[in-house]
């Protein structure tokens, strides 16, 4: 049923298959999948683009008093065709007021919270919309990670100016 190659051909076939696999892995697969690019070929070919992380352009702490209420402002870039999260760690019943806007187009947004220590993937959405600005406040119904998921469905990066105040500690972009 199977082929019967002479042993030299068998060894040759095995070595060739390993060599081709290593070349493909190093030059193309690892750069594209994991941003591991020892030769730099992946970057030259533009394969590392899949791993472009969301960049915080600037973070600015407007006011951090000794009081528990803080205010922060951040500019977040949501890469084209990608989704990112910006999260705040909050205890139960802590409150945050927020406002965000962009001039670059509309974003799908899901403001939601995930309970601390939860591993089931459960989350509760407070607001889902596709808009270019939003203003509001929420009180955390449980301790955990609360914040925004933005999805950029356009073909160019979208910059958001996000300002929020209240009681929280910043977890940042996830």
């Amino acid at each position: 049923m199977e082929q019967n190659l002479p042993s030299r051909s068998l060894i040759k076939a095995t070595i060739i298959s390993v060599v081709i696999a290593i070349i493909a892995l190093v030059l193309f697969i690892l750069p594209a999948e994991y941003n591991i690019d020892p030769t730099g070929v992946g970057k030259k070919l533009g394969l590392t683009v899949f791993n472009k992380q969301a960049v915080i352009v600037q973070t600015q702490n407007l006011e951090t008093g000794s009081s528990k209420t803080m205010e922060d402002s951040v500019v977040i870039s949501v890469p084209a065709r990608r989704g990112i999260e910006y999260k705040l760690a909050m205890r139960q019943y802590q409150k945050v007021s927020y406002e965000w806007n962009t001039n670059d187009g509309q974003l799908y947004v899901d403001l939601h919270g995930e309970p601390k220590g939860d591993t089931t993937g459960y989350f509760e959405s407070y607001t889902i919309a596709t808009v270019d600005k939003m203003k509001g406040s929420f009180t955390a119904p449980f301790e955990g990670s609360h914040g925004w998921y933005w999805k950029n469905k356009t073909n160019k990066d979208i910059k958001i100016q996000l300002t929020f105040s209240g009681q929280y500690s910043i977890e940042g972009i996830k």
């Binding site: 060739i16 298959s17 081709i20 696999a21 290593i22 493909a24 892995l25």
Partner: peptide, 13 residues
């Protein structure tokens, strides 16, 4: 041989 090579790529990845 190509099949083996593809398998090695999967393993490496």
């Amino acid at each position: 041989t190509a099949l083996m090579s593809a398998g090695f790529m999967l393993i490496g990845m």
